[in-house]
Amino acid sequence: MTGQDALFEYLLRLSDNALILGHRLSEWCGHSPALEEDLALSNVALDLIGQTQLWLSLAGEVEGKGRDADKLAYLRDARDFRNVLLVEQPNGDFALTMARQFFFDAWHYLLLRELKGSKDARIAEIAAKGLKEVTYHLERSRDWVLRLGDGTEESHRRMQTAIDDLWMYTGELFESDEVDQAMAREGIGADLAALHEPWLGLVRATAEEATLTLPQPGWAQRGGKRGIHSEHLGYILADLQFLQRAYPNATW
């Protein structure tokens, strides 16, 4: 794998996380527990879609085969998607959505903070912009973990279940393969393993304040970064890509 190939792969991981999670959040629009949440969830989704556009455009540029952001988003099949399994998990109830968001935001925040110092100025620039948004995302999802964990008996039970259900998808966030390692070595990407402790610190403190119990470290589900996804991703893409697939070469 050449340096350019690794960089392209790395950018796809960044963009696909944002694309798929933004898509999941957009599914809530009009169905959330209160109007204020319709607004807030849509805001986060819009930020993530915006980040997707930036990362994917850069990925297309790096690849150099004339694929723009839309071609990359709408015309790749599931095996070519590089997002982590966590973000493609179905929304479930509001607790599951917020637990997923909190786990992701805490990691995303730490990651972008590192990438802000990337040697690749294009990456540093996108990361700096994204970091501002993600700082707010984290504040909000953390707040919801607290409110639901320490709210009513029912909300506590639901948030605890959500955390238990999603825990096995968090390990993948910190696993490095040759792509991550190459990028970290060159000072372009972040050392993912090094993000684990600060992430755990933040998650532990939040769980404690929210009266929640974190599961023991255990087996991690993995594969998303290599294109081995859950069954859910195919359905996301069936929705996302429907028009582009049904009407090839049309412009919209």
């Binding site: 957009s26 629009c29 009009g30 849509s42 805001n43 556009q53 919209w252």
Partner: peptide
């Protein structure tokens, strides 16, 4: 909202999501 997840481009998706979000705001 029925077409947010099926909007044909990233830009159309963002515009439609923002529009439906505006409607929540109007409400």
């Amino acid at each position: 909202g029925n077409w947010i997840t099926r909007a044909p481009t990233l830009e159309r998706k963002a515009i439609l999501l923002a529009k439906v979000q505006d409607e929540a705001g109007h409400g």
